[in-house]
Design a protein around this nucleic acid. Structure first.
Lengths: 231, 231
DNA sequence: ACTGGCTGGATTGTCGACAATGGCCCGGGA
DNA sequence: TCCCGGGCCATTGTCGACAATCCAGCCAGT
């Protein structure tokens, strides 16, 4: 069951980078169950490398909050609590709101056009698939990615895409995503794009914040209904 | 010029953690000049350890944007451009604004009282020292730290304190801080605390955002005057 | 029977050496 | 004189082995 790579595509970089990406994918996709303890030796031979590069990969994953390490004890795959997810959504609200504001200021006309094209594509898919949520999931990520990159703010982009979104994706995998009202989300996306086209930074930020906030409230409602956190 | 440690205080954790903190301090304090290339072997023997732990420390510092690594080439201490500093201030504006909002909602009465006590202490120091900026620098950081922690949002706290503020501090060390109008800043701090005491989250966020935004505009003004980025 | 300490095993932390890659310098040719 | 190519060297990437630490289970004592 050793993982196999394309020998010319991924070997370009160093082995530590390969095992880092592979391990990250494995965690996000749920191939390694969340919250489980794993040994370094086990992981090392699983990914066909030594413990040296593996440990470096683990350090990076630790800073991304994907694994937890306790000295002399071991590694466990991160299992996020619902509270942590809610906290992340507050951060997303602040950062993506700012991203939308900056996108309205700095996006090139080509980027805006691409954004609207993406939205049109979503509309077709949505019309076809009505309320199936999964494809819309990836489309939703794509939409947010474009606005984040449209901010042309590297610090903001690195923080959101490099640090936060991995956790969000792991979450969606763990709890197979709360039904996230694709038609409502699409309408919100539409209005955000309109605000960006109008170069209205204030409005774009406000709409994006409400969009993220709605998603958070939607999750909180689900949690209260299902009473998943008795405590 | 080898760094020295308290042999009982810092040795509690692992050696990789010690060299991580030591290296981070050295970078922030400017002991290692920004932008300079350094070799792994050199650093390893400087901190009295082997290359193994040092490389793990470097990985963590890399994710914190304090060093830059290029494979097979080497390490260079991060030297932030002015544009990067401005970008960080936009992120701070968004995140600390949210932190102030959450602090107004979630701070305990004790934390609020401590915040006001800190402000009173600043007022005394400020009255004594008029316009000397340096002490106010640390006080300013302390003020912001308390509000961030007052948000009771771990994701937000980790991001701001764990990822961002090191860069801000390194900056202040590099460029020995732009004169940051302590009396004006103090007044803004005062109004933020008042908003938090009134549990007015909207106002607290707005004031904090304007506070950070003012600091950013102050820096931008200095950059334009001195024309430090000819390009 | 239960608590306390202890020993054995396993896992992580650390180290030194080897291999591989990139940069630099020197020499030759146009 | 300038440009290009090849070889050498330094530095990084990787590996395997040794040492330190923690956890589990057992044994003894009360």
């Amino acid at each position: 069951m050793t993982t196999q790579f394309d020998p010319d595509e991924s070997t370009a970089r160093t082995a530590a980078d390969r095992v880092f990406e592979a391990l990250q994918s494995a965690i996000i996709r749920g191939d390694i169950p969340a919250g489980s303890r794993v040994g370094e030796t086990e992981l090392a031979e699983r990914f066909g490398t030594s413990r040296g590069p593996l440990r470096e990969a683990l350090r990076r994953l630790e800073s991304r909050k994907l694994v937890e390490r306790t000295p002399h004890v071991g590694i466990r795959i991160a299992s996020l609590t619902h509270e942590a997810l809610i906290e992340i959504y507050y951060v997303r609200e602040a950062l993506e709101g700012m991203a939308a504001r900056l996108a309205a200021m700095h996006m090139t006309p080509e980027e805006v056009a691409g954004l609207r094209a993406l939205l049109a594509e979503h509309e077709r898919d949505e019309a076809l698939q009505a309320d199936t949520a999964y494809f819309q999931q990836e489309g939703d990520l794509d939409f947010h990615y474009r606005i984040i990159k449209g901010s042309h703010n590297r610090a903001l982009t690195d923080l959101l895409i490099g640090e936060l979104y991995h956790l969000v994706r792991m979450y969606r995998q763990q709890f197979s995503a709360y039904a996230n009202r694709p038609q409502k989300a699409f309408g919100e996306h539409l209005r955000i794009v309109e605000a960006i086209e109008a170069r209205d930074g204030d409005l774009a930020e406000m709409l994006m914040r409400r969009h993220v906030s709605s998603a958070r409230q939607n999750i909180e409602r689900h949690l209260n209904e299902h009473e998943q956190t008795p405590m």
